[in-house]
Design a binder for these strands. Structure first.
Length: 165
DNA sequence: CGCGTTTGACCGGCGC
DNA sequence: GCGCCGGTCAAACGCG
C-alpha cells in the first residue's frame, strides 16, 4: 500500500504550541498527490458535532479557542475535575483535504486500532495511533459525508518524539 | 518471526 | 433502566 507524502510533521510540531498553523505545502514529488483544497476544522467550538467551523486561515478560530481556554484554565497548578464544564483542553486538530487517498503519510508511523461505521455517513471512520511507545497521539480519518472526495483527518495529542523518517 | 491490519466484541457516556 | 452511539480492545490472520 502506497501512501501520499505530505509535509505534515513540521505542522504537527508547530501545532503543539497552538501558536500558529503554517500552511502545509503539498509535496508533489511523486506526482500522485492531488491536494487541491485544504480546510481547517474547529469542531470543538461547535456544540453540534455534526457541524464544524471551516477556516481557510491557519489558527483563525484556533486563537479564539486558545483564548477562552487560557482565560478559564488560567492558573492550573492541578487539573482537578472541579467545575470544569469546559471541554478538556487536549490538543485536537482537524482538517479537510481533497484527496482520493485516505491515509496521508505525515512521517509518523501509525497503527490502525479500530474502524467504525458512523450512522450519519455511509463511509467508515478509521482510528489510528502512533506506533511509538509512550506517544499519546491519536488520529482519526474519515471521508466527508457530503463530499466523498474529501478526507477529514483529525489529530489528537502531541508527539513527544521525533519523526522516524 | 515480528509487526501491522482486520474485525467483532466490549464498554462507558448520554439521552430518552 | 435501556438502548443508541462513538471509541477502544484484542485475537487471529496476513504480509514482508
Amino acid at each position: 500500500m502506497l501512501t501520499t507524502r505530505l509535509e505534515l510533521p513540521y505542522c504537527l510540531k508547530s501545532m503543539s504550541g497552538y501558536n500558529s498553523w503554517p500552511p502545509c505545502s503539498p509535496e508533489n514529488e511523486n506526482g500522485k498527490f492531488e491536494l487541491s483544497e485544504q480546510y481547517f476544522i474547529d469542531d470543538w467550538l461547535e456544540e453540534d458535532p455534526s457541524t464544524y467551523v471551516l477556516s481557510d486561515s491557519p489558527g483563525q478560530n484556533l486563537q479564539r479557542y486558545q483564548e477562552s481556554v487560557h482565560d478559564s484554565g488560567g492558573s492550573s497548578s492541578h487539573e482537578g475535575p472541579s467545575s470544569g464544564e469546559k471541554k478538556e483542553a487536549k490538543e485536537r486538530f482537524a482538517f479537510k483535504t481533497k484527496s482520493e487517498i485516505e491515509v496521508l503519510d505525515d512521517g509518523f508511523k501509525w497503527r490502525k486500532y479500530g474502524k467504525k461505521m458512523v450512522k450519519n455517513s455511509p463511509n467508515p471512520r478509521n482510528y489510528y495511533r502512533c506506533s511509538v511507545e509512550g506517544c499519546p497521539v491519536k488520529k482519526r480519518v474519515e471521508r466527508d459525508r457530503e463530499d466523498p472526495r474529501y478526507v477529514i483527518t483529525t489529530y489528537e495529542g502531541v508527539h513527544n518524539h521525533q519523526s522516524s523518517s
